[in-house]
């Protein structure tokens, strides 16, 4: 092995400068190569989430996106209208709730124009594995807590414990309530939006 470079002030400044310069240049090059692809992947992910919850469409819901507030003191939810031949066939709504057992839950809920739930998908959650985390398969068609085909309207869906007609996830009533809270928020926003038109 050769001789080590001496730790003089000039050497240290110079070497650190060169190391950071080369490193940041390398990172910059890779960034410029991957940035476009990363963005495309994310858009694709979002479009897939929309495609999963509304009937077939031929427009680009991402560009038609708009925001609606269900009420004045709530955060706005994102509307992605799905159109086939220029006619509205459904609306995917990215909605949320803060009442989950582990905090925020984000859902994509699809409604047909008459306000009936077409499908839903869970975007993110921090619920307990094995309990609240079952919500991605619990409320689908044919499962115990089926909400597909129901029309929450302005009244909203409720778990059977609270007098509603949706079976809560076994031993995870809080997560189920939170899930329905997010769905109902979307339904209220949809109702408000259609009245404004």
């Amino acid at each position: 092995m050769g001789k080590k470079l001496e730790s003089s002030f000039k050497n240290m400044v110079l070497v650190l400068f060169l190391v950071t310069l080369i490193s940041s240049a390398a990172v910059g090059v890779v960034n410029s190569l991957t940035a476009g692809l990363i963005e495309k992947v994310q858009i694709e992910k979002q479009t897939q989430a929309i495609r999963a919850v509304v009937p077939a469409f031929d427009n680009d819901p991402m560009t038609d996106k708009y925001m609606v507030k269900a009420s004045d003191n709530e955060e706005a939810v994102e509307f992605y209208p799905a159109k086939q031949n220029g006619e509205l066939v459904g609306t995917a709504i990215k909605t949320y709730t803060n009442d989950g057992f582990g905090g925020k839950i984000e859902l994509m809920v699809g409604f047909t124009p008459d306000g009936v739930i077409y499908n839903y998908s869970v975007l993110s959650h921090k619920e307990t594995p094995g309990l609240g985390s079952k919500m991605d398969s619990w409320f689908v068609k044919g499962a115990k807590g089926n909400i597909i085909g129901k029309n929450p309207g302005t009244k909203g869906l409720q778990v059977s414990k609270d007098g509603g007609d949706v079976d809560a996830i076994t031993a995870a009533t809080i997560s189920s309530r939170a899930f329905l809270d997010a769905v109902n928020r979307a339904a209220r926003a949809l109702d408000k939006d259609s009245k404004q038109k």
Binding site: L5, V15, S23, V27, T34
Partner: peptide, 29 residues
């Protein structure tokens, strides 16, 4: 050998961080 002893840790960390960022971006893509 070109990195003076007194600044070897910051030097190494910068190099490592650059590779990690590259891996991070490639995986995201």
């Amino acid at each position: 050998n070109s990195i003076p002893d007194k600044i070897r840790i910051p030097g190494f960390i910068v190099i490592i961080a650059a590779f990690v960022t590259v891996v991070d971006m490639c995986m995201a893509a």
